[in-house]
Design a binder for these strands. Structure first.
Lengths: 232, 232
DNA sequence: CGGCCGCTGTCACAATAGTGTCATCAAAGA
DNA sequence: TCTTTGATGACACTATTGTGACAGCGGCCG
C-alpha cells in the first residue's frame, strides 16, 4: 500500500492543473478528468482512495456523480470531497446528505484542501495518512512498522503486520476469509482459505503474549473481527 | 446503545445554549462545558461519541484539547469537529493537521452543523447513524455481526443470526415455516419444517435471557413474527 | 558457497460449536 | 374432552475452527 489514489473531477483546467501539481508533490497518485461520465468510468476501472469532485461539471452534475458512486458496491465507501461555488448552504447540506464526506467552498487554498484530504484519509484509511493507529491498548506506527500493546513492543511478521493493520483500519468489522485474502495478501496466486486461520492464530499469539485478553473475535461461519469487548 | 453522546466545548453561553437545544431535539445525549481542562476530564470520565470543540476557549486552547484527546488511548479515535472564528486559514489547517476531523467557521447554521455531525458519525459509528437494524430494544449491527438487547450483547449462532435478521428486516410480518426456510436457509437439501420451531426456540432463549418479554409472536397455524406486544 | 534462520502456506488431527430430528409434553381450539 | 399445533430437551452428527508440525524459500552471515 504505497501511494493513495486520488481522482480529481474538475472542469476548470487552470484550477485542475494547479491542484494536480500540488497533489503530485504530496505523493498522491492522481487521475484527472473534467467529465462526470468519465469520472464514473475511471472510478470503476480502478477504485480510488478519495474523490475530489466539483459540483458544477460537464455532463452529469457532481451531485449525480456522487450519488452514483455511492450506489455502486465497489465505490460506495470511497470518501468524496465536493468543491462548491461560494454560497448556498442548502447545496452543501444536500451534498453532505447525498453522501459527500466534506466540501470546500471556492475559492480555497490548495494547502487547505490538502489538509482536508489528509484528514479524511486519516479517518477512512489511516495508514494512508501516515498515522499511528490505535485500538484499545494497541497502537501501530505504520511508518515505523512497529506495534505496541500496553506500551510493550510486539514482534510481528510482515503478514501478521498487514493483517493487523487491516483490522485496525476497520475496527469492529467482521471480515470473511475471502475478504481478508483480498485485502491483506497480494493475490498473485491462489491461496488456501484456511491459511487465514493460521495467520490469525499467529497474530493472536503475538498479541496476547502474557495473558492478555484476546482482541480478535472469531465469528463462526463469517470470519474475524478486531474487537475489544469480545464478551458481549 | 441508544443515544449518541456528544461533548460540546464552547464558552459563548448564548451559542452553547442554542446548540444544546438543537442537539437535544435531535436526540443526542449532550454534555456541555466552557472549559478546556474540564472538557478533558469529562471526556475521560465517559468517552463521548463525538466532540464539538471551540477553537478559542477558556483555559487551555482548543487546539491543545484536541491534541490531548488524540494522545489518550481511550479518546484517540473520537471524532472532533472544531468551531473556528471566520478567517485564519492557517488555523483551520493546523486544526485539521492536529487531528480534528472537520471544522465549521462561525457563523454557521445549527442545521449545517447537525448535518456534519451526522455525516461524521455515519462514517465512524454506523450504529449511531442508523445503519443498524432496530426493533424495540433490539439492535443488530450487521457489519460487526453483533446483536444487542437493551444494550447488552446477545450471543447468537449463525442460523439464529440470519433468522433474526430476516425478522428485523420485516418487523411485524408473519412468516410461515416454508417462507422462513426459503429466506433463511441455504436450500441445498430439504429440511424438515419443524426445524424452524427449534431455531425459533433457540432464538427466543437467547433473546429473552434474563426475564425479558418475548419478542417473537407465534401465530397458530400460520407461522412466526417479530412483534413487541405479543398479545393484544 | 553452505548453512542457519525467520516466514509462509498446507496438512492432518483435535477440539468445539452449531444443526437437524425425534419423541414427548403442553397449550389452544372446537 | 378430543384434536391439532407448538414448545422442549436430548442426542447423534456435521461443520467450522484451533493447533502443532513440516517442508519450501529466500536472505544473511560467516
Amino acid at each position: 500500500m504505497s501511494k493513495a489514489r486520488l481522482l480529481l473531477v474538475e472542469d476548470d483546467k487552470v484550477l485542475a492543473d494547479l491542484l494536480v501539481w500540488h497533489f503530485e508533490r504530496d505523493e498522491y497518485d492522481v487521475r484527472w478528468t473534467s467529465d462526470g461520465e468519465e469520472a464514473l468510468m475511471l472510478a470503476l476501472e480502478q477504485v480510488p482512495d478519495i474523490v475530489i469532485l466539483d459540483w458544477m461539471i460537464e455532463g452529469i452534475s457532481g451531485l449525480e456523480v456522487c450519488r452514483r458512486l455511492r450506489r455502486g458496491a465497489a465505490t460506495a465507501n470511497v470518501p468524496i470531497i465536493m468543491l462548491t461555488a461560494r454560497g448556498e448552504e442548502s447545496d452543501r447540506v444536500r451534498g453532505l446528505e447525498t453522501g459527500a464526506d466534506d466540501y470546500m467552498t471556492k475559492p480555497f487554498s490548495p494547502r487547505e484542501l490538502i489538509a482536508r484530504i489528509a484528514a479524511v484519509l486519516r479517518r477512512v484509511r489511516p495508514a494512508l495518512a501516515g498515522e499511528v493507529l490505535h485500538y484499545a491498548d494497541l497502537e501501530m506506527d505504520v511508518v515505523a512498522h512497529k506495534v505496541r500493546r500496553d506500551g510493550k513492543g510486539v514482534p510481528l511478521g510482515p503478514t501478521e503486520f498487514r493483517l493487523l493493520r487491516h483490522f485496525l483500519e476497520h475496527p469492529g468489522r467482521v471480515f470473511s476469509r475471502e475478504r481478508l485474502l483480498d485485502a491483506v495478501w497480494a493475490h498473485d496466486h491462489e491461496i488456501e482459505l484456511r491459511t487465514v486461520d493460521v495467520h490469525v492464530r499467529r497474530l493472536r499469539k503475538a498479541l496476547n503474549e502474557g495473558d492478555r485478553a484476546d482482541l480478535i473475535r472469531t465469528v463462526r461461519s463469517a470470519g474475524y473481527a478486531l474487537d475489544a469487548d469480545g464478551d458481549f
